[in-house]
Amino acid sequence: MIQKKVCILGATGVGKTSLIRQFVEGSFSEKYLTTIGVKIDKKQVDVDQTSTQLLIWDLEGIDRYCGFNPRYLRGTSAFFVVMDQTRSQSLIEGMEILHMARDHTAVPAIMIINKCDLDSAWHWDADSVNQRASEFDNCFYTSAKTGENVEQMFTEIARLSLG
């Protein structure tokens, strides 16, 4: 079976770990628990009758306490940048993270706008989101809580990682 490494990046508290948990275990917890370091999960995805095992590298949220470590992107076939639609600052930080990652890799990138089960911040500017989405290979509005588009985002990254 083909094995592909993919990374999930984003600011603190946007729901990276919850998205993986929903995808791998089908569960969700309301309690926010910060990730330290790296955690790797595996799950098989079928794309066009090709079975691919995704090695999903869940990276600690990038913020003032944890800088961006490009070493973890080595060998990745594609990556997600996750943003939280209830917090507009996570959009700005997500774009900064994309640009930092782009200094090290040209592999496909997917924009994830998470927590779409909640009301978007009333200052969340849809136009600027759409404009920024054009810098990615694809964009999904997801909810780790309801599972909306979670399966789809991982299937899409598997497809993109197969080239």
Partner: peptide
């Protein structure tokens, strides 16, 4: 980080 997130929301 909880502080950071709360602060972020208020700041925004």
């Amino acid at each position: 980080r909880e502080l950071l997130i709360s602060n972020d929301k208020i700041q925004a």
